[in-house]
Design a protein around this nucleic acid. Structure first.
Lengths: 322, 322
DNA sequence: ACAGTGGTTGACAACGTTGTCCGGCACTGC
DNA sequence: GCAGTGCCGGACAACGTTGTCAACCACTGT
């Protein structure tokens, strides 16, 4: 900027005024400055600006995996809202590792992001206290923060969706409904198990439940075990998109009564097409981002906890008889 | 930091030394400083640090859409490499809009990213000249920069892959092979058309080619038109993942001889399973990021232009007879 | 002719950090 | 006791920007 100033024969401050579109610069002077800017290929140093002004126009997003379709859709929505507020997005994957999550949040805060959107992996978020107190708002998405921290949190109706799926299978005559969920330490997995169990009532049988990371082997093993029971399951409820796909792969085309939590591309083209409880990741991201930007524009009301609805999408696999 | 210094009863610079792990501080003093840091919840202001040191430990990634599985996989790989270099990733979607692309690059550069990875949407990248001259390296991925700019570029073997797919269908007896490609202004679409055409030789018939954005309507219309020809196509080659999925949806389960460019999840579970020319988006992202970090660590050799191989994955749909 | 006015412009400090350099202190060897 | 030698700690400037405030200029109205 100094160079631009001397090239244009004006003071530093005048260049600053032109760059920021501040009034009080004669058009002729402004043109001279702009010409010098173009000639030198100058671009404002945002770090210095941040240092002076305190706002980075950047928000941080910590999700489990930027390549997972669910989180990618969520991230895209956050990006759109951020763009509408002239903000950029720092995004990173925690890989379901609490230490990494914390490290990322720390790195984001050191870069002075204006706000944070977090899909938490860990169960303790007390490390966020100083940042929150310092005025960096955070919004949790998909999963709540650990105990002792009351911040904005956007969740889906996990238990309700699971109950919906389970009742749907019950309504189609199934009495032995298996549940494949992710590890119970994951909030959504636990909530969905809860909804499933509540809907089943006394039909609940823990032998029909498996809560493990969604690998091909773990799913195969669980299904083999269940199918070998005296009274094997006649239907399957899978607890997230990854598990649904993995289960379909293990079933290898054998049609089975199945409802999955989370929609996924091509669910409609499989045969039978797959009935799912659909969340709307884009909406979730949008709601969270809008909440964050409301906080950034000064709203300091009590923490909000919106719960987004889910929808049962009938496609065939969930309507098969026992 | 000033507060920490006075809280610990030391000078500013001593705190700086502790924070940066510089030698020359007595352990007892360092402990006192660290205690003060914890007590005050202090975290270093990265903007100020950047201002002083010149490096942000942040790289920028401009892709077409962070939610597209192909680019999401690419982005994830870039993130991994960046993380290995203790860098964060600013990522954004250009939505195939040259103006937006340029705006994003500008915003990234203003924030003084250490380097850029760009999947270009536009055809003119002369606006990058000042940044490159200023020492911000850029790597282009998936598509080359506009003319007049010779920078590192990582491409896939688009023409080769298209030829491979086309010859595969030819080898299975097809003589009328249709091609659905994206808009010809998109580099990869043009290259794939080129490979398809070269492989067909005199069998090429422009009535069997459609190059349009992959909407349901445009694909339906193109297929209807082609199937109404005197000598309709007996096989279909789709020019990217989105088109493949859209075409499958239009075909609605009617089996058709089909090879798609780009692999996609569940391609193996459809019936017939879908034969594809698979790129490796993760590898592409990794190669690009590694190239970028080599530049960042001082390698200023001539621009490199690696071309990544593609692989034909036989699954059934490409082996159907006419 | 002169104070008053409004529109431009510029000098300077400050943001929080790090690099440079210098001062003080304890300890060593004479 | 005294210079020499490390080691530790601190003062200060600088990075590039913006907010504050004051100075300047050309008019205007009296």
């Amino acid at each position: 900027m100094k160079d631009v100033a001397s090239a244009a024969g004006v003071a530093l401050k005048t260049v600053s005024r032109v760059v920021n579109g501040e009034p009080g610069v004669r058009p002729a002077t402004a043109d001279r400055v702009r010409a010098a800017i173009d000639r030198l290929g100058y671009s404002r140093n945002e770090s210095a600006r941040v240092l002076r002004r305190g706002r980075t126009s950047t928000v941080g997003l910590v999700i489990e995996d930027v390549a997972d379709p669910f989180y990618a859709g969520l991230g895209r929505a956050v990006e759109s809202v951020a763009a509408a507020h002239d903000c950029l997005l720092l995004s990173a994957s925690s890989s379901e590792d609490p230490a990494r999550e914390r490290e990322l949040v720390r790195a984001f805060c050191a870069r002075r992001v204006d706000g944070l959107i977090v899909v938490p992996a860990g169960a303790d978020h007390s490390y966020l206290r100083p940042e929150l107190d310092a005025g960096t708002p955070a919004v949790f998405v998909d999963r709540p923060p650990g105990p002792g921290l009351d911040v904005d949190t956007v969740l889906a109706d996990n238990a309700g969706g699971a109950a919906l799926a389970t009742r749907h299978l019950l309504a189609h005559g199934h009495r032995r409904i298996a549940f494949l969920g992710d590890q119970p330490t994951i909030f959504t997995a636990a909530r969905r198990l809860h909804g499933y169990r509540a809907a089943l009532g006394r039909l609940y049988d823990e032998r029909l439940v498996s809560m493990r990371a969604p690998t091909l082997d773990s799913v195969r093993e669980a299904l083999d075990r269940m199918l070998a029971l005296d009274r094997p399951p006649t239907a399957l409820f899978t607890g997230n998109g990854r598990l649904t796909v993995t289960a379909l792969r293990v079933l290898a085309g054998r049609p089975a009564a199945l409802v999955g939590f989370d929609d996924f591309e091509l669910a409609d083209l499989l045969r039978p097409a797959v009935t799912v409880v659909a969340q709307d990741p884009a909406r979730m991201g949008r709601v969270a981002a809008e909440l964050l930007f409301r906080r950034l524009s000064g709203d300091d009301g009590p923490a909000e906890h919106p719960v987004l609805p889910v929808a049962l999408v009938l496609r065939g696999s969930g309507e098969l008889p026992p």
